[in-house]
């Protein structure tokens, strides 16, 4: 896994108290127990932490964690 992926995992664990073992590329945010308000917060935190822009509807609850990781990596111009 890429450094960005690992960074996102750490952020979910430390900031959103998601259990590390639950986090897989194919896990949806619903499965990670992140509701729509938490998702908005996650996107805001990402923008501040990574100094990048993300629309507040960039991901929804049925999207996977892997999808978010790809989106972030794309914005950062990093190859997975």
């Amino acid at each position: 896994m890429s450094a960005t992926y690992e960074k996102l995992v750490d952020l979910l664990v430390t900031h959103f108290a998601v259990e590390r073992e639950k986090i897989r590329p194919d896990a949806t945010f619903e499965e990670l127990d992140l509701d729509s308000l938490f998702l908005v917060e996650l996107l805001l935190v990402l923008q501040t932490e990574l100094d990048m822009e993300l629309a507040d509807d960039a991901v929804n609850r049925t999207d996977t964690f892997g999808h978010l990781a790809e989106l972030v990596e794309g914005r950062l111009g990093v190859t997975p």
């Binding site: 308000l37 908005v40 917060e41 805001l44 923008q47 501040t48």
Partner: peptide, 13 residues
């Protein structure tokens, strides 16, 4: 210090 983007979505609740 950081602008509106840095304000938490959970501020109100």
């Amino acid at each position: 210090e950081k602008g509106p983007q840095a304000v938490s979505a959970l501020l109100l609740p």
